[in-house]
Design a binder for these strands. Structure first.
Ligand code: FES
Ligand code: FES
Lengths: 153, 153
DNA sequence: TATCACGAAACAACAGAAGTTACATGAGCC
DNA sequence: GGCTCATGTAACTTCTGTTGTTTCGTGATA
């Protein structure tokens, strides 16, 4: 089953966006992610609706942060990209007649819900700015000056 | 993304298997699950390797429990069906050069690992027999005598 | 008005479980 | 021995949702 990389990618984009003092075009971002502009626009559209980023058209246009990274959590971003399905594991039948299967569903559902709750709770605790700080620590530890490390940059 | 129902289905099968005093054929089981015999054999093959079920060929053959339900946990069954991927969420790139993306991956991976650990811990705590007991309680609460509730039975 | 860049729709590609078909193999039964 | 039942296994198709791609429309700047 193919994985859903939208949350991962958008976090990456947001962090890079903060480093820039200018709007980033969909094409730049696409090159960064190894994909194409249309997909970038499609996914960033969700973040725009939430006010996390702002887009501008025409000359000098592109994407910019709509608010500080300290004011958005991973949970916010997760929801902004459409709250995608978390689990690949699923139930064979959601509303079975069979009592046996109902017992199976109850147990699995309960466990999955618990894991989901933990995950979303953690997401809500982590600000995107925390990732930037972690990034800064990494760079410092390696004695690097902060800059783009992208292969195509 | 399509869900992985192997764990769910095999639990269902194991519970029904215990009710029977005779081997169940792949065809019977397939009818129960709403699928076909080849898929049943394919999936049950994993459980056989773990000794959770036993298969017999020829006349009067079929599938039977290889050990009591009290001696297998959901974790055992999960592993027996091949330890399928738990999450639909994933990272865009597993080993990125970009320090920013590494920071993103670290945070996401840590959170996913935590949720996965919780899930597997719970699975290891639940015996398949616990599901049977839950099933029995349901049946009793409804004043039903235990029997097949399958539409095609 | 020419160009830039987003907006959005439409469609093909891809991955992995599920579904299906087909045939070989072995076990019982007559 | 030969027939039938049922598993064992491989090969192939179908299904579903993200991803990838193309195309055209719209607004903004120079
Ligand atoms: S991908 Fe993050 S720097 Fe290019
Ligand atoms: S499906 Fe469980 S009784 Fe038929």
């Amino acid at each position: 089953m193919r994985h859903d990389g939208r949350l991962s990618r958008m976090l990456h984009v947001l962090l890079h966006m903060e480093e820039q003092q200018r709007p980033m075009t969909s094409e730049e971002i696409a090159g960064m992610l190894g994909t194409n502009p249309a997909l970038v626009r499609r996914t960033l559209a969700g973040l725009r609706e939430g006010g996390y980023v702002v887009s501008e058209r025409g000359h000098g246009g592109g994407w910019m942060l709509g608010r500080p990274l300290a004011e958005m959590t991973l949970r916010d971003v997760y929801d902004a990209v459409g709250s995608p399905e978390i689990f690949a594991l699923g139930l064979a039948d959601d509303q079975p007649q069979c009592l046996v299967e109902q017992a199976v569903n109850t147990a699995l559902r309960q466990t999955l819900d618990e894991a989901r709750a933990l995950l979303l709770r953690r997401f809500a605790e982590i600000r995107v700015s925390d990732l930037r700080d972690d990034f800064a620590s990494r760079a410092a530890a390696l004695g690097l000056n902060v800059g783009l490390s992208c292969a195509d940059a």
